[in-house]
């Protein structure tokens, strides 16, 4: 049983971020990579809320509020780009989307 200290919350945040980063590096599907990006974003919000609660300030919470809004806009635009890409190339695998390479 782990006590809910600031260290514990930060450890969870770091773990989530690391898992998301591994997913971005390892997976080949654009959609799954995008999901892992979202995971990293959420990991940062956990750290912000934890710091805000343990320091008795409000700024971290408000910042998370902004992050949520920006994430919603980002996902909408990102998925639209992925759909446009799929229409042109008929694939979501990143190792086939290499037109900009070389």
């Amino acid at each position: 049983m782990i006590a809910p200290t600031l260290n514990a919350y930060l450890a969870i945040s770091v773990l989530l971020f690391a898992i998301g980063l591994i997913g971005v590096l390892v997976r080949r599907n654009v959609l799954v990579i995008f999901m892992c990006l979202e995971l990293m974003l959420v990991a940062s919000t956990v750290a912000l809320v934890a710091f805000s609660r343990f320091n008795g300030t409000m700024d971290g919470n408000v910042f998370v509020f902004f992050i949520l809004t920006v994430a919603a806009a980002e996902v909408a635009v990102g998925l639209a780009i992925i759909v446009a890409l799929f229409r042109k190339r008929q694939t979501t695998a990143v190792n086939e989307l290499n037109t900009l390479k070389n």
């Binding site: 969870i12 979202e38 959420v42 809320v49 919470n61 509020f65 994430a71 919603a72």
Partner: peptide
């Protein structure tokens, strides 16, 4: 975890938006 940190509005928004 947000609820455990007393950030009820953010927990609600996370469920709603995300």
């Amino acid at each position: 975890l947000f609820v455990a940190l007393d950030a009820y509005l953010l927990a609600f928004l996370l469920l709603l938006v995300y």
